[in-house]
Computed example of a mutant assay.
Amino acid sequence: MTDFVIPEIKASEDEMIAIRHYLHANPELSLEEFKTSDLVAKQLESWGYKVTRGIGTTGVVGSLKKGDSNKSIGLRADMDALPIFEETNLPWASTVAGKMHACGHDGHTTILLAAAKYIASESCEFNGTVHLIFQPAEEAIGGADLMIKEGLFERFPCDRVFALHNMPGLPTGKLGFYSGNFMASADTVKITIKGYGGHGAYPQRTVDPIVTGAALITALQTIVSRNVTPGETAIVTVGTFQSGIASNVIPDSAVMELTVRAMKPEIRDLLIKRIEELADFTAKSFGASCDVEVYDSYPVLINDDEQTAFARELAVEFFGKDAVLDTVLPSTGSEDFAFMLQERPGSYFLLGNGEKGEKGGCMVHNPGYDFNDAIISTGASFFSRLVQTYCR
């Protein structure tokens, strides 16, 4: 891949790696990315971008126009870290206990900064406007949605938008594209069962929310197997079930939380509907009641066919056929870039972080993960080519 990296981007690689290591050592959680935003804004301003801050609380947009064309393109990077205790023992390991860049957003931010420096240089010729979107809160809350609700695309019009994610398990620096429904929707569902507590020695005088909840957990396992067409992707997982504080006390309530995933919007709607129905019917059958709350919801990420084909063909043209993976499968992971793809055509693609057993092969959201610095220049070069090719 090195042979296809833009020389000017390669020349700034040491500078960018230093930025990446600083970001990794100083992680910030969702909507707390104040130092990260400061660094991003100062770098963009030094290269001549018009910088807008505070969109979605800590989001930053850098805008640059060259020539007289009305064409516009958006490139997005996420900035937030995760609440994980790092175990890498690297020189640039997190200095903040319980916070870690365990998903590579430090690398994504650096890739977009490396592209930004080149795009602003005299060496990069294009005719149009580029908006570089540095987004907060991808891991929680839905920072993309926050930015959109605060007028992202009205204030910074984009004909098309692109984003990437590093992917452990894929060969270092190789690009993967998928057209259509690529990543699952994700919903957190909180179910609160309300019973009537009492002494554990007299259960007949109570409405036991634990027994009710146990029955509901069993019933929830039938949703996918008995309501979803075989072959469709659907997941209903009960991740927490909390109730009671003593063995001889039947509590008043029980709370469970679910993660719900689907690859099609209509399947997503079906899962939520059946969860609500089963929760209500099961609670009533035991003499209890319940509340169902759905939140932290991300839609299905759907890559535009035309824009995905454009990006794939561009990768083959500039990097060669061997640099593009033949097969990339849809994922039941979720990604809030899906909100942006609901508003503008575009594509979300993968950049190999390293295969298992190699540097960069540790899976994301793991305390031993680290972003592979070897792919910074590759990602930045491809982002730059997207701008140059579309804005001709």
Rank of each mutant, 00 (worst) to 15 (best):
residue 69 S to F: 06
residue 96 V to F: 00
residue 118 Y to T: 05
residue 128 G to Y: 04
residue 93 A to F: 08
residue 115 A to T: 10
residue 125 E to R: 15
residue 114 A to V: 06
residue 114 A to Q: 05
residue 124 C to L: 02
residue 87 E to I: 14
residue 71 K to H: 08
residue 124 C to P: 12
residue 101 H to C: 02
residue 121 S to T: 07
residue 119 I to V: 11
residue 125 E to D: 14
residue 83 P to H: 10
residue 129 T to Q: 07
residue 106 D to I: 00
residue 77 A to M: 12
residue 108 H to I: 08
residue 78 D to C: 08
residue 100 M to V: 08
residue 76 R to V: 10
residue 81 A to P: 06
residue 69 S to C: 11
residue 65 K to H: 12
residue 128 G to S: 04
residue 90 L to T: 13
residue 108 H to T: 07
residue 108 H to M: 06
residue 80 D to L: 03
residue 116 A to H: 03
residue 104 G to V: 00
residue 92 W to R: 12
residue 71 K to D: 05
residue 124 C to Q: 12
residue 112 L to W: 01
residue 83 P to S: 10
residue 71 K to G: 12
residue 101 H to I: 00
residue 68 D to Q: 14
residue 125 E to M: 14
residue 86 E to M: 07
residue 68 D to M: 13
residue 100 M to F: 09
residue 82 L to C: 04
residue 68 D to R: 14
residue 98 G to K: 07
residue 102 A to Y: 03
residue 117 K to H: 14
residue 104 G to M: 05
residue 68 D to G: 14
residue 128 G to F: 04
residue 76 R to C: 08
residue 105 H to T: 10
residue 86 E to G: 02
residue 108 H to L: 11
residue 106 D to G: 00
residue 100 M to C: 12
residue 68 D to K: 15
residue 125 E to I: 15
residue 97 A to S: 15
residue 100 M to K: 00
residue 93 A to M: 14
residue 98 G to A: 12
residue 115 A to I: 00
residue 74 G to W: 01
residue 107 G to K: 00
residue 79 M to I: 13
residue 74 G to H: 06
residue 94 S to A: 05
residue 116 A to E: 04
residue 90 L to I: 10
residue 106 D to M: 02
residue 107 G to Q: 00
residue 74 G to F: 01
residue 96 V to G: 00
residue 78 D to P: 06
residue 113 L to P: 10
residue 79 M to G: 03
residue 85 F to R: 15
residue 65 K to C: 09
residue 98 G to N: 10
residue 105 H to M: 09
residue 85 F to T: 15
residue 97 A to N: 14
residue 76 R to K: 14
residue 91 P to Q: 11
residue 84 I to Q: 06
residue 123 S to F: 15
residue 123 S to A: 15
residue 126 F to M: 10
residue 112 L to Y: 02
residue 114 A to D: 02
residue 65 K to S: 12
residue 72 S to T: 15
residue 81 A to D: 05
residue 110 T to N: 12
residue 88 T to M: 11
residue 116 A to P: 08
residue 126 F to D: 00
residue 78 D to M: 09
residue 103 C to H: 04
residue 93 A to W: 07
residue 122 E to R: 03
